[in-house]
Amino acid sequence: MAENDFYSKDGTVDYQGNPANRNKTGTWKACPFIIGNECCERLAYYGMSSNLVRYFKHRLNQHSSVATRNNQNWSGTCYITPLIGAFLADAYLGRYWTIALFSIIYVFGMTLLALSATVHGIRPRCYAEDNCDPTVTQSAVFFVALYMVALGTGGIKPCVSSYGADQFDDTDEAEKKHKSSFFNWFYFSINIGALIASSVLVWVQDNVSWGWGFGIPAIAMAVAVAFFFSGTPLYRNQKPGGSPLTRLCQVVVASFRKFRVAIPADKSLLYETVDAESNIRGSRKVEHTQDLSFFDKAAVETESDHLTTIALGNYLSSLLVTIVTGITARNGKLGWIPDNLNYGHIQYFFWLLAVLSVLNLGAFLLIAKWYTYKRPVGTLR
């Protein structure tokens, strides 16, 4: 067997940053830790959220409409914060570190939530079972903990299932077939956690105490974090590929700027399609399709591409430098009339440079329509 056959071919690496070894990482060796983490996390989430309106009403002394609104606001936050987790995972941190970071925030939030229902001083003052009068500080502590949980669950939610998918190499048919089985067990674990939370934990909150009702989910979340970190040597990790929003905007702008350029019939002539791997570090190669073919224009290399990039880059950098320098040239003071005329005339020179830069860009764009475009002979390196 060739040496390369020991390693995954989808660009994944192990926890040390080395190419992932097929025999030592990924597949079902790593998935039980991810599934266990998800089961405990869902138990913690549903355990504290299923009965939340009741806590608002009977412990924070809120009217039913206010309690319902607060619960909906919190639930909505839980479904917005995944945008943060997904962006950080894909662009900068990677899924492993995103899950690790937000899991820690999650644990702190759940712990503070349990303490807010247990510890004297931050626990709402109650004169009877359903007669409580919390202070502003006590309510604030509870809501800080609640929204820490919202941030934690939002950071984890978009990453865990895709992180499990990362453990299977799509280029290997045997591993690819096992991926569907992983998702079956993954969603089964979610339902198990939700079932226990919605039945057992709700009963504990109503019949034992809110301290235990929030404490058990906090313990479950701590177990989830322990599950996750214990599988670290077995995970396969995809490297983050930078901001996808930046690349998306670049494609849109380049496509509209080249709207007159003809798309070659041979799609292999499109820039970056020949190589087996993506030229974007940490990103996978995506199969070319006929959908939204207009955006293929962004991948047609032209003679003016590099000229335009250099010119625009020089323009923006020079404009920024000259404007900032002109504003701050007079001992950091703003205004057109300087305090000292013998010193202050220099800023007018910088403003003149800024105006000239604007005129330079206008002239460049004006004559750009006369540029000639040349189709590439092959893929550029």
Results as ranks from 00 to 15, higher is better:
Ser65Lys: 10
Ser283Gln: 13
Ser243His: 15
Ala265His: 09
Val225Leu: 12
Ile196Gly: 00
Leu307Asp: 05
Val208Lys: 14
Gly332Arg: 07
Cys31Val: 12
Leu234Cys: 10
Tyr127Asn: 08
Ile99Val: 09
Val358Arg: 06
Leu146Pro: 00
Asn191Gly: 12
Ile84Pro: 15
Leu359Met: 15
Ala117Val: 05
Gly242Leu: 02
Ile192Tyr: 07
Val208Trp: 13
His63Ile: 11
Arg123Thr: 05
Gly193Ser: 08
Ser65Tyr: 14
Ser161Gln: 05
Tyr96Thr: 06
Thr379Ile: 13
Gly155Cys: 10
Leu201Ala: 05
Gly362Tyr: 11
Asp169Val: 01
Ser209Phe: 14
Phe87Tyr: 10
Ala114Lys: 04
Ser243Gln: 11
Ser317Leu: 13
Ala224Lys: 01
Ala165Lys: 10
Ser268Glu: 10
Asn73Trp: 08
Gly155Arg: 00
Leu353Ser: 07
Ala2Gly: 05
Ser103Arg: 03
Asp172Val: 07
Lys57Phe: 01
Ser161Ile: 07
Met110Trp: 06
Asn184Cys: 03
Phe294Arg: 02
Phe364Val: 05
Asn342Leu: 04
Leu101Val: 11
Leu112Asn: 06
Trp28Thr: 02
Tyr271Lys: 14
Phe102Tyr: 11
Pro338Glu: 03
Arg260His: 13
Val208Ile: 13
Leu115Lys: 09
Arg284Gln: 08
Gly17Arg: 02
Ser75Trp: 02
Ala299Ser: 11
Phe214Asn: 11
Ile80Met: 10
Val252Glu: 01
Arg284Phe: 04
Leu334Arg: 06
Ala86Asn: 01
Gly211Gln: 10
Thr27Gly: 01
Ile34Phe: 04
Leu359Gln: 09
Asp266Leu: 08
Tyr106Glu: 13
